[in-house]
Design a protein around this nucleic acid. Structure first.
Lengths: 160, 160
DNA sequence: ATTTCTGCAAACGATTTGCACAGGG
DNA sequence: CCCTGTGCAAATCGTTTGCAGAAAT
């Protein structure tokens, strides 16, 4: 299910090579950390995870590596309403998924929809552009919470 | 076309009154500034504009007023890919519009689409939620730029 | 009179950067 | 070797906050 770490490595290091950039133990650790989870994470959280794989990784390296991962398309940067941006490692497996954020419990549900995808492409072309990244964010309130006064949903649920 | 400033004032001060908050000259200036344009603006830009209307307005007051405007629904906070968030005063006139951002020239095109709107509502209900805010951001590249090597579009164009 | 608002300046916190050394090709 | 990458600590920059006085109700 998870894309093999090797394919992620190949993909990024292919990208790095094109730019004349080098392979290092620290970048390996950051990549391994980023794809060791399906959860969204902040830069700081990635720093902690990467440090567990290789304690020579510094915060600066994490902050310098993150943009490379985003530009190469391995990771997607998202603003889901929290105080910092988060990074989503699930775009390799689900390149067109979108997000619903519950305003009550802050839970995030990922969903895919082929129809929206299609409409986005049409709209973009009609305006004279070629689509690159499309993102939908829906902020909503939990019906169950409104009815029962508490939200029973479990954190790990994903609509994918 | 622009909603009368009075209606904006009424709307916000209605909201403020509900919360036991007060009407002040500084808030008036910030509101007037925010709705003196159809362009997106940053907090700092709003500060400059508000100061032109009343030079007693401080940066702190702008930063304290901005969340009130967002929570009351008058202004929408957007992450369009720049380094800071921007605020969009056009949601009063076009409550469901979305954004396309050109990766080449950074121009922003606003568009509305009833079909996407509908799909977002369906998806949200299907997942057991009631939609509150829905946003679509499309990042794209200008076809004309690709063909001609330069982007001839003018900054003020809006797809609404 | 009571409470909210304000400007100021200091504090904050996430991110970025300059530097000198380490290490990949 | 040469040049990129690194950790460290300092710098940056947008935003937030504590405070004492000003102003709204």
């Amino acid at each position: 299910m998870t894309p093999s770490r090797d394919s992620v490595h190949d993909s990024l290091y292919g990208y790095l090579a094109e730019k004349g950039l080098r392979r290092t133990a620290q970048r390996d650790a950051v990549i391994a950390a980023a794809f060791s989870t399906k959860e969204h994470f902040s830069a700081e959280e990635l720093y902690v995870m990467a440090r567990r794989m290789n304690d020579s990784v510094s915060r600066a390296t994490v902050y310098r590596t993150l943009p490379l991962l985003v530009e190469s398309g391995l990771l997607r940067e998202l603003d889901l309403g929290g105080k910092t941006k988060v990074y989503d490692p699930n775009f390799l497996e689900h390149p067109t998924h979108n997000h619903l954020v519950c305003l009550d419990c802050k839970k995030i549900i990922e969903f895919e929809d082929q129809n929206i995808e299609l409409l986005e492409n049409c709209i973009t072309r009609r305006l004279g552009f070629s689509p690159k990244n499309k993102m939908v964010k829906i902020e909503a309130r939990c019906d169950e919470l409104k009815l029962r006064g508490s939200c029973s949903r479990r954190p790990a649920e994903s609509g994918i």
